[in-house]
Write a protein that binds this DNA or RNA. Structure first.
Lengths: 224, 224
DNA sequence: CACACTTTGTGAAAGCCTTCACAAGCGCGT
DNA sequence: ACGCGCTTGTGAAGGCTTTCACAAAGTGTG
């Protein structure tokens, strides 16, 4: 039943990665007044196949009613509980360069349940300046943030050269979940989760497809 | 040999997604003066297994030398060629809200080969203002950008409510590759590639792991 | 020149994930 | 109360991806 790719509670990693999408679709439906939804319609809204949605949800439990569908509010509650969104998650952003400042100012972090409680930087020049309503703190403040504020999620927005060092500091302070915007592979001890977001990578993948398509179109013209 | 998950040239999608990582690792090694690299060492730098790296590279061709390894500069050239990075890719950002402005200002887009050539917004109030050295243009300019500047990649940074509409406009103008920052599932005709970047989703996945870990630690204390 | 050492390229095997197909179960109308 | 229609939950099958293990091939040395 459980395998190497399963998370501690037996939910496959790929399923966990899709749950936020279902949650967003459900919230939209609930706001529109829909009290019940079928796997077919929720799957369409989420951009997945109905059987995949049902298989994913089956890992959480049996919260649907055969012949009817899923109660919107119930499913929202269950997925929220599974993801751990019933509590608040304090977030700290490390690295106040171009990207870090953009992230600090970006309202997108103010999603329900997440709150940026601290901004940090290794440069003494930057420490003490005020960004997006918060005073930038030195890296040395990390342990106190973890113990006093329950900091559990760190966002790395430093240049690649400083990323590993900042990552190590976060891990040493007790942070176990890291979102890495720096274009580097981070080495972390087991038990620490790193997710990576990289614009350059995304653009290059898109370039591949544009390139391939241009090639195909060219070949077609030549061949026809 | 080729399958549903293969791209036009028979390279699996998962492989394409990893090529940018190899490219970055190789560039770092080349800058450090390394002229040759083994699959074991390149794999370690890229954060993958040696056999996966070799299988991925084998889809591009046989560019290694048995008993020696890969010539750094040669492999950089081959991967760049496969990804289509030998030419320049003009990029347009649609939606000049908080996120769009941050992306326009963010130097991270100025990766080799990608250049933001236009900023667009549907709001007449915003059109004409100057952001990061570019004048914001109306959506109606899209077709001209595609034909005159060869625009091929569009970045959507609008609120979710406007995302589909902007996506349709991009597709109608001839853009075939879209990077979507809006938390919405975009419907596109076949042949158009969409990749999604969503901070809220990433944070929720991290929350799941923190949550699971806190749970496990709690259970352990209770059990012991 | 032959041999030993190293590392690639690749079939085959194993493991995941997705899709399929259908029994089980629920509500509703009669 | 009973049957009909609809939708979920889930084994089984199929398809991808990753890992394994080794033959093929190149380098360097005596």
């Amino acid at each position: 039943m459980s395998s190497l790719h399963d998370t501690p509670r037996g939910i496959p990693e790929v399923t966990v990665a899709r749950l936020p999408g279902y949650l967003r679709a459900l919230t939209t439906l609930a706001d529109a007044g829909q009290e019940s939804v079928s796997s077919e319609s929720l799957a369409a809204t989420s951009g997945v196949s109905p059987s995949m949605l049902r298989k994913d949800l089956s890992h959480l439990g049996s919260y649907g009613v055969r012949g009817v569908g899923y109660e919107t509010s119930r499913l929202i509650a269950e997925i929220s509980a599974a993801l751990g969104l019933t509590r608040d998650w304090p977030v700290a952003i490390v690295g106040m360069g171009n990207l870090g400042r953009a992230l600090a100012a970006y309202q997108g972090f103010a999603v329900r349940g997440f709150q940026v409680i601290a901004l940090l930087d290794g440069d003494a020049e930057v420490v003490g300046t005020r960004i997006a309503g918060l005073d930038v703190q030195p890296m040395a403040d990390l342990p106190a943030l973890v113990t006093r504020s329950g900091l559990a999620i760190g966002v790395i927005a430093t240049p690649p050269s400083a990323a590993q060092q900042c990552c190590d500091a976060l891990v040493a302070a007790g942070v176990r979940s890291i979102l890495n915007f720096a274009p580097t592979v981070l080495a972390v001890p087991p038990g620490v989760i790193v997710r990576k977001v990289d614009l350059a990578t995304e653009l290059q993948i898109l370039a591949f497809h544009s390139h391939a398509q241009a090639h195909a179109a060219h070949a077609e013209v030549k061949g026809a």
